[in-house]
Nucleic acid binder design. Structure first.
Length: 114
DNA sequence: GAGGTGACTGCGA
DNA sequence: CTCGCAGCCACCT
């Protein structure tokens, strides 16, 4: 039971991930950086792991590593679902890597910059 | 309470 | 170009 923490680091991650528009993807580092911890990219990964238990729907398949590689696909059920969802949004995946990744990359630091 | 792990990233050799 | 190491923080045993 958290003490006074209504929202956790995870909740912030979920919110950012939910803001990712269809046909776009983001990276762990970008989200971590947006939250103020560029080195805490691992926590974003853990947040995604917790996303499976999240009440709200979290499009974790839109979150990939810096290289556009589907590093977390193995954590999906089934794993191939991640690639399928991305392809369903009009993206091309080859060898677990997003083609033209730079074009579909969605950076919260840029899109959500105030 | 302490140690190990992990859906990552950046820099150095 | 590829390979290896260190930093980061929360969760699990």
């Amino acid at each position: 039971m958290p003490k006074g923490d209504n929202v956790s680091f995870f909740d912030l991650v979920f919110e950012v991930v939910r803001l990712i528009p269809p046909g776009r993807v983001s990276s762990y580092g970008a989200i971590a950086s947006y939250l103020g911890s560029g080195k805490s990219s691992r926590m974003v990964g853990w947040a995604m792991n917790s996303a499976s238990s999240a009440i709200l729907n979290v499009p974790a398949h839109r979150v990939v590593n810096r290289n556009g590689l589907l590093t977390g696909k193995a954590h999906f059920n089934p794993p191939e679902m991640m690639q399928k969802l991305l392809e369903n949004e009009g993206m091309t995946i080859e060898n677990d890597q997003i083609k033209n990744f730079k074009a579909v990359f969605w950076d919260p630091n840029i899109e959500l910059r105030l």
